[in-house]
Design a binder for these strands. Structure first.
Lengths: 335, 335
DNA sequence: CTGAAAGCGCTAACAA
DNA sequence: TTGTTAGCGCTTTCAG
């Protein structure tokens, strides 16, 4: 069926296109009778307004964009599920930008900004650089960060420094003295949580009068398998750690697998604590720092919708709570 | 910055807008010299073509839609990850339609079809009705089904009847005679796999000379918690089953939790087999029927891209393999 | 190879 | 309250 246009509807209803547009947009200034006629014509012709035309004319796309790194990352997926739950109940559609190559991140962002592809943007687990922020501000696109921090942008975050502190403190309280940290690369500019948690780790260590040992900090690309390798290094040290704090649950799983492979018992011989509380952490009974993943997506999207509706002079910050979840992978060290 | 338009570029380059459009679209009929001038003007003005305008004018949206039910479902997420991996490397963007309410499914589909929101559509784990198919065909929108079957549409599927058979056969081979099936509602029109696997289950039973017992089939809404309740019913029967085949791994997890709660040991007292091989099944060592989830998304999206490029007269079918993965939740029955 | 001009289907400003 | 009309920014004829 060659889809009907607004002109066809106008003709059939015996009114002008402006009037049809008015009833389409729930503009009040239409008489009952006229509205009825137009509505009848619309349903008769099975008319539905063309989106591209509407967008060009109105300047609004009615879509929200979500920029995410590694759509395969469970915690990112969980956040996205929160986003989707909100978007689905709004008038907006969701377009997903998956950045697998960090080098292409820039290209994505600029594209999105310049081409006016979306009315609002959610940036998830991807810390923008100052240059990025400049571009965003220049483009005037309502933007909200989720799990990423920048003072100039509205955001939904957790206190990662405190999270790192809390995880380490838990291990310390258990009596551990040789505590390692495995993480993503500390100098990844797009990942600020990794540095914050590291800071918390060192704070807790210092507070306990413990020296930071560089050989107890392993960093590498994110992932379960990469974490296994880092763990092996750690466990082969002359004086191996008795506890490992992993930057994420995914990495904690790798730590556990590597330890098990070496015949090291958890938690008897090695304590492991993760971060995030993804579903797998529950299944595997991993002690972890829970953060409200799903909720962060919900809050982020709600905040974005708000900002889109009435822009706020100041960037907003929503701080979500974190909480230690004790399960079966941490215990006091032997003897 | 008030974004530059094609007109600005034309003016600055001293050419007509048509020429600018030609270089934008890699049209060959532009002299080296002219192209150079235009390109210079473009980069000088930091110009990027407006998408809405391009869409309206060309009639192409350059976006692919993915219609999914329950974006929280792990197997759906996994398939989607496959889709994303392909879309990301194409010229298309991805827009996500999440259908949480089955009643609204229709509305979504019609909307997508009529408003020309996308150039191609992927329908995941949502079996279309004949009416749906009619609408799709009328709209002439390239469409591919993933994990859903309809003879009139291109699709990526597995042999679910065989899968159900294989799962049941495994239990039978182990020596079980009292085998139950818990599943989603059998009469859900949008879920054909549930019926196919049930058919396979009954085939295997019949082949073994076993009668189908209605009290051994529990159905309900999909989910881990719902599966727990169904399992409790089963296990409280006068002669409870010694093995349970769960429609999905998610449900198998519920089965296991319910059994454990009742002090029933797995696999000693009860064998459990799931379906899908989601990540949690690996963590929990659940015996299951693996299907290539991620791969289904990849194949589906590649097929869609192909169909969009050159429409095929006949609907295509891609059949993906399934495979029994024996882990720790199935064993011979006691004595 | 290139410029001019006619839309694509809609919204919104302007009259009436 | 309503009809008319001028664009929105681009692609794509149609001439030349």
């Amino acid at each position: 069926m060659a889809t009907a246009t607004i002109r066809d509807v106008a003709q059939k209803a015996g009114v002008g296109v402006g009037t049809v547009s008015r009833v389409l947009n729930d503009n009040v200034s239409v008489s009952q009778e006229t509205r009825r006629k137009v509505l009848a014509a619309i349903s008769e012709l099975d008319f539905s307004p063309n989106l591209a035309a509407r967008r060009l004319s109105s300047g609004k796309t009615m879509v929200i964009g979500a920029l995410v790194p590694y759509f395969t990352n469970p915690s990112v997926v969980r956040r996205l599920q929160g986003v989707v739950s909100v978007v689905t109940n709004s008038v907006y559609d969701l377009i997903l930008f998956d950045v697998e190559l960090v080098e292409r991140r820039d290209e994505y962002l600029l594209n999105v900004l310049r081409r006016q592809m979306v009315d609002g943007l959610l940036i998830i687990s991807l810390t923008p650089t100052d240059t990025d922020v400049q571009h965003i501000q220049q483009s005037d696109l309502p933007t909200v960060l989720v799990d990423a921090n920048h003072p100039a942008l509205s955001r939904v975050v957790v206190d990662n420094v405190f999270g790192g502190y809390q995880a380490t403190k838990h291990l310390l309280d258990l009596g551990h003295r040789r505590i390692a940290y495995i993480s993503d690369y500390l100098d990844d500019p797009f990942n600020s949580p990794v540095r914050d948690r590291f800071k918390g780790y060192r704070q807790a260590l210092a507070e306990a009068g413990l020296e930071f040992r560089t050989d107890y900090h392993q960093q590498g690309p994110h992932g379960r398998y990469e974490a296994r390798a880092m763990t092996t290094n750690l466990l082969n040290l002359p004086t191996p750690p008795t506890a490992i704090f992993a930057y994420s649950d995914t990495q904690a799983i790798g730590v556990i697998e590597a330890a098990l492979d070496m015949g090291i018992k958890i938690p008897e011989d090695l304590s492991v604590i993760g971060f995030d509380n993804i579903e797998a952490a529950e299944y595997l009974h991993i002690t972890t720092i829970r953060q409200a993943l799903y909720e962060s997506g919900v809050s982020g999207c709600e905040l974005l919708l708000q900002v889109m509706a009435n822009p706020m002079p100041e960037p907003q910050e929503i701080l979500l709570p974190i909480e230690l979840v004790q399960r079966n992978t941490t215990a006091p060290p032997k003897q």
